[in-house]
């Protein structure tokens, strides 16, 4: 089984489920390095997003992720690090 990874499209989907999207923000655009705040996601939206990622992918993200991961790229990296550390299924 290939290593499961969390992509930008996955993040877009979870963000939409968790908090919707601001009408002035193009979530489908090049947002990898755009601050969540600029995408109109406040800390609570990121907290909710992280909670959903944890549930769906069976990982555990430290609470500090919410404050440290300022951009989609940073969050993807943290999630994928966690996923890589999971024991792979037989």
């Amino acid at each position: 089984m290939p290593t499961q990874s969390f992509t930008l499209d996955d993040l877009r989907r979870v963000l939409l489920e968790a908090a919707g999207a601001d009408e002035n923000v193009d979530l489908d655009g090049d947002i990898l390095d755009t601050d969540f705040e600029e995408l109109s996601y406040e800390s609570l939206a990121i907290l909710e997003t992280c909670g959903r990622i944890e549930r769906e992918y069976g990982i555990s993200l430290d609470d500090s992720v919410v404050t440290e991961a300022k951009t989609p790229r940073a969050l993807l990296s943290l999630v994928n690090t966690q996923l890589a550390g999971l024991p792979t299924a037989a």
Partner: peptide, 8 residues
């Protein structure tokens, strides 16, 4: 209302 508000 914008969907950003619907979730919350």
């Amino acid at each position: 209302l914008p969907n950003r508000l619907l979730a919350q």
